[in-house]
Amino acid sequence: MFLKNYIGDIFSSIKSLLTGMKLTGYYFTHLKEIVTEEYPDNRGTLKMAERFRGEVIMPHNENNEHRCTGCQACELACPNASIKIVTKQETQPDGKKKKRIDTFVYRLDMCTFCNLCVNACPSEAIVMGQKFEHSVYDKKQLKKILNFPNSKLMEGVEE
């Protein structure tokens, strides 16, 4: 009785193994049905999802103008202080002095891509970018200034 069970066990094990082998054999012979996925090396044609949160960017138009008024809503909304806005007083053409951003400092190394800053922004000045490879040789490069040099506030945003 013991021997019969023992041999029966061996056969049922082999049968179950063969069932699994059949499946792997199926994928081995059907090369078109690929199970795994490759790292996206096709940079030219790669299209990420439109809501993908890669990094915070500040879009500028062709006249080097952005939409950031320096209201610091994103700075307040950020849970881990990755955004710092330095403002300055700028004399307008009509002689009035107004608050404008000097530097918009964004620390990518501290960012968790929670999207709260983009949600908080009242003038849609910052959006999430599509770039996903952020490795650099020096961590200082992860501290970014988002507004371009000599950029200006777009007209009509502040009203």
Partner: peptide
Amino acid sequence: EETCGTRLTQNFIVPGGVMY
């Protein structure tokens, strides 16, 4: 990823509903 923007740590739920 398409709906929330992230694959693992989706911060998609806000008090009162969802983000988008």
